[in-house]
Amino acid sequence: MMQEGYKKGGLHPLTLITNEAVTIFKEMGFAVEQGPELEDEWHNFDALNVPKDHPARDMQDTFFIKGKPGIVLRTHTSSSQIRYMENLVKNGGNPPFAIVVPGKVFRNEATDANHEMQFYQIEGLVVGKDFSVANMKGVLLEFFKKFFEGEEVDIRIRPSFFPFVEPGFEVDLRRGEKWIELLGAGMVHPNVLKNCGIDGEKYQGFAFGMGLDRLMKMKLKVNDIRVSYQGDLRVNQF
C-alpha cells in the first residue's frame, strides 16, 4: 500500500499575512500587544477622544451587547492601545514605546466581497519625545516596501479626520502606476495621551491602522474576503 504521505497541517492565509506584517514591524522595533474583543465604551470610544453623542461615533457601526450597557464589540484594536498605555503608566513606565496590535474587530454593517461583520486589523502606536509625521511616513513606507518586496511602491498622505489623531491622514499606496487609498493614520491627539495619564505636552507620537483582510486580498489576490470565515479549508492554499 502506497499512499501520498500525510502532509503536515497549515495556517489560514490571514494568519500568514498577520505574521508577515507583525514580523516587518518587529524588525522596526515594535512589540506586539493584545487586548480583549469585548470592550467598554471608555476604551473603545471616550478615551480615544470620541465623545458620547458626537457625530464622530457614527463613523463606525458598532455592535452593542444586549443587557450590558456600555459594552461593545471593539470596532478597532485602538482600544488595546489605550489599555497598554494605562498599564504602562500604572506600572510607573513612560514613553518611548512602539507597539502593534493585530486582532479581530467588528462592524455592524452589511456584508459583501469587501466587508464582513468581523475582520482583522493591525494598528500601530509610537509615542516618545519627538516622533513625527516624517517618522510615520518612514515606518509606513518601510512596511510596504518589505510587504510588497520586489515591487516598486510609494506612499503619500492626505488630510483626513479621525478623532483620536491630530493631524489625521489618509494614506495612499502606489504599487506600480496606481494609487489606492489604504489606511488611516495620524499624530496621536494630545487628549488621548492625557486620557491615559501621559503628558501630551511632553510626549508626541503617531498611530496607524489597516485592514489585514485587505492586505491579504491585495497580496494573495483573494477576490472575496468572506471566504475567509466559512471554515472552508480550500482557503488554506499557502
Binding site: 455592524n108 454593517e109 461583520m117 466559512q230 471554515g231
Partner: peptide, 22 residues
C-alpha cells in the same frame, strides 16, 4: 497535522448577544 480555520464569531446560539445585528 492540523489545518487552521477562522470561523465566524456570530452564531444562532450563545450566552452573549448583540443588539440590532445586520
Amino acid at each position: 497535522g492540523y489545518q487552521e480555520v477562522v470561523n465566524s464569531v456570530f452564531r444562532n446560539r450563545g450566552q452573549v448577544s448583540v443588539l440590532a445585528a445586520a
